[in-house]
Design a protein around this nucleic acid. Structure first.
Lengths: 123, 123
DNA sequence: ATATCTTTGCAACTCAGTTGCATAAAAGTC
DNA sequence: GACTTTTATGCAACTGAGTTGCAAAGATAT
């Protein structure tokens, strides 16, 4: 993915900090928290979070809160559910569609919680 | 609901603080956060959170994190999905069952996020 | 090159939830 | 009821993710 193209036409400037955040999010195949990537990016956390806010305003990035009190971020793709393991806290993107309709409500995201394949057999 | 009976046979003592937390959770028809009920209970927040931990150890209470950085608590009933409004942050229990199976995974809870009936028409 | 507007790092702050510790209050026993 | 043991409580100090104010640095347009 070409980050420059990705940011073009959005009303935000192209900076090293922004490129490295987006590169990390593109490379991951699951949502990441600040703690997941802070070792791999060299910027203040204020810069990280302020850029995330910008990305979300532009619709480039989506986020949600997990069990472990961290917020998780991913490049906005076609909507898909997420799975959060209540044992090891890992987060995965779910490929299978979850169909659900609630009269009068507009569903934007679905989060499934439970035990992942690794944890389901442990205890 | 009789709180004394509810707590009986669990390895925790019956105290005023515990009774008032459980009463509030029973009376509500949706999950509540500490902020939701702190005005209506007279105890230190340390006492509140420590008791919630006990209740969860005994399986009396369940909880999850929401969008607004607060943790929400409810009396453990038969499993049902929850809806979180991304505009007004209200949380509702969903009565319609959501069927979903993920091979090798054990689903414990389903959280739907989106716009509630009041917010879906606003913006 | 220069002017303008945006972004950055730093440090200080916020706020939900946690922890240590001394005191108080349950529950069981006599 | 008085005594003993165990558990619960309040207070204050702490933690850690995320936020904010501000001055300095960097991006883009002219």
């Amino acid at each position: 993915m070409n980050i420059e193209k990705f940011i073009k036409n959005k009303k935000i400037k192209l900076t090293d900090a922004r490129i490295s955040i987006l590169e990390k999010l593109f490379a991951a195949h699951r949502p990441l928290s600040y703690n997941d990537i802070k070792e791999h990016i060299s910027m203040d956390k204020a810069t990280f979070y302020r850029n995330i806010i910008k990305f979300q305003e532009e619709g480039l990035v989506s986020s949600f809160e997990s069990n472990d009190k961290n917020r998780y971020f991913e490049i906005t793709k076609s909507p898909h559910p997420h799975f959060i393991c209540t044992s090891c806290n890992i987060i995965e993107c779910v490929q299978e569609p979850v169909v659900f309709d609630l009269d009068g409500y507009q569903i934007e995201d679905i989060i499934l919680k439970g035990k992942c394949e690794s944890c389901v057999n442990v205890k």
